[in-house]
Design a protein around this nucleic acid. Structure first.
Lengths: 146, 146
DNA sequence: TGTGAAACAACTAATCA
DNA sequence: TGATTAGTTGTTTCACA
């Protein structure tokens, strides 16, 4: 994991479909050398994979919310994960400092769908109380700069 | 934008480096037909691009926080965007319902870096007050299922 | 680890159904 | 809009430095 790897990652974050030759040209390496490094980064788990960035509105996932989750008593991190993972509307989940136990990021088709997802979230056995904050507009949504 | 397009998008979200031939095989189309549709989806802005999914820890971006932002008086959405966009630590920003005006998602190398980023965020002229919630662990972080 | 060469596979434009 | 064909480009394995 050196500077070259970081530059390769940076290229792939910018365009995951760039050819190895293109990346190699940008970082000063031959295509096979780039492939070898990318394979290793994937193997080590530093690169988790490649994905398409989709306009959520276009797919009909225009409504999102951040939900503070408060649990009954002490619930292990792993159980929270297992509880929220089955809901397809959950795009992110984090345990946090402060009064809440976790923050769950929901994405749904519309307000009605969001409500349904919230109801299912509240149905998770160890969840006591939720505080929702509905997103009015997405100002920014970008990968961290490598 | 039909079922075929959605299945193509779904394939690309799963693996953005899949070949057109592979995608075509999965959805029952020839490679050129897939390319034609992908090009059109990119052109329409439904597909915004392709990116690598990186383990933030590995890159040294292990600390994150959600920050409620409260503004002085009424600040237009666009100005909030312009205010937070220059901070590289900002990976997401949303205007929201409820008492806060916006939620900003920060990613930093460590607590110290996070503090610096917060200070710079608080330095944005129209920002009055911030309430930070530090992420203890990322339970889930995934693209929405297409 | 890097490179270059070579076999193989994929991309992409043009054409036709 | 999809398939097919054919020329070009990219991938990937290998031997070698």
């Amino acid at each position: 994991m050196d500077t070259l790897d970081q530059r390769i990652i940076s290229q792939l974050v910018t365009d995951a479909r760039a050819s190895y030759a293109e990346i190699g040209h940008a970082v000063g390496l031959s295509a096979p050398a780039v492939k070898r490094r990318v394979d290793k980064l994937l193997d080590m788990g530093i690169l988790r994979g490649f994905t398409a960035v989709v306009d959520p509105e276009a797919l009909g996932w225009g409504t999102e919310a951040f939900v503070e989750v408060h649990c009954h008593g002490n619930v292990p991190t792993q159980r929270i994960r297992e509880g929220v993972e089955p809901l397809p509307e959950v795009v992110g989940a984090y345990t946090v400092s402060g009064p809440a136990d976790a923050i769950v990021h929901l994405r749904a088709a519309d307000i009605h769908h969001l409500e349904t997802a919230l109801e299912r979230l509240r149905g998770v056995e160890f969840i006591n109380r939720t505080v929702s904050t509905v997103v009015l507009s997405r100002l920014l949504d970008r990968p961290p700069q490598a």
